[in-house]
Simulated scan of single mutants.
Amino acid sequence: MQWLLNHPMFIKNHLYVAGESYGGKLTPMVSVEILRGNEARLRPQMSFQGYIIGNGLTDPNTDFNARIPYAHRLALISDEYFELAKLSCDGRYYNRDPNNVQCLYALRRIQECLRNINQVQILGENCGFAARKPYDFGWDHTFRGDHSIDHLVLPNAEQECQNIFAISDYWANDPTVQEALNIRKGTMTKWRTCYDGISFEPNVESALEYHKILIKKGYNVLVYNGDQDMAAP
């Protein structure tokens, strides 16, 4: 909103909100806030048209429970392990019964099979930026503290994979790139792909209700998923 107030020549432009990964939750939430602001006649009035989500999270019971069927469909786990988990866990792999010993056993076997798989790009090298929580089938994102450009070169015998976050950081902090994007000098000392300095509490478990509000209003929605992402299948 503040950006539009500072650049009023763009206020009448059509506005689409977009996000990916965890932004799959934030995108419909932000969209609903814009909608409510417009309905309350707040200024500036935004020409909100819809939203776009790529490989986004929506609801953990849906998202995380889909990971094991996805892994089986792409032959990352055997029929035997999948059938054992499906029967023992009754289709509840994420929010499961902690006292179900057979289910826990089946999930541990599957976890072992997936240990070296890159969860966000199953055909890519497992560079360690998507670390799994043991036996939980929810994955944390952890990042290397070393953002040097040593990780930008192609893999070789001593270096197995690229650090995609280091690549994007290096690109975004390049002075020629910032000049081409008309970034004002001094507005940000260093750009980071995933900035962890913002304090917030993830207190919205599901974004389904936000989707329902926007779809019922008839806004344009585009949701797409890559075939190789097991984190948000």
Rank of each mutant, 00 (worst) to 15 (best):
D79G: 04
G23N: 05
L15D: 04
A207R: 03
T176W: 10
D79E: 09
P69I: 02
L214S: 06
E158G: 10
E125W: 08
P175K: 01
Q2P: 04
P44Y: 10
V101R: 07
P8S: 07
K185P: 04
Q2D: 10
E39M: 15
S168E: 03
G186M: 03
N126Y: 04
K12D: 11
Y219L: 14
P28V: 00
I11H: 09
M1K: 05
P134V: 07
F48P: 02
T27V: 05
F137A: 11
N173C: 03
R184M: 09
Q102W: 00
G24E: 03
P175C: 00
E33Q: 15
S31F: 05
A232E: 04
Q121F: 06
P8D: 07
I52G: 02
V120W: 08
A130L: 13
T142M: 15
D90W: 08
A231L: 11
Y105G: 03
R108W: 04
P202A: 08
L214F: 05
G54Q: 10
Y219E: 11
E201Q: 15
M46G: 06
N220E: 08
N203Y: 07
I110L: 01
L42I: 11
M230E: 06
D150F: 05
Y94Q: 03
A75W: 06
Y16K: 07
N13L: 13
T58G: 08
E83M: 10
E83D: 11
R144V: 09
E160V: 12
S21N: 07
E20P: 03
L107N: 01
Y135N: 13
G24Q: 01
V101D: 06
A207V: 06
W171V: 04
S21I: 10
G197Y: 10
V30N: 02
L87A: 10
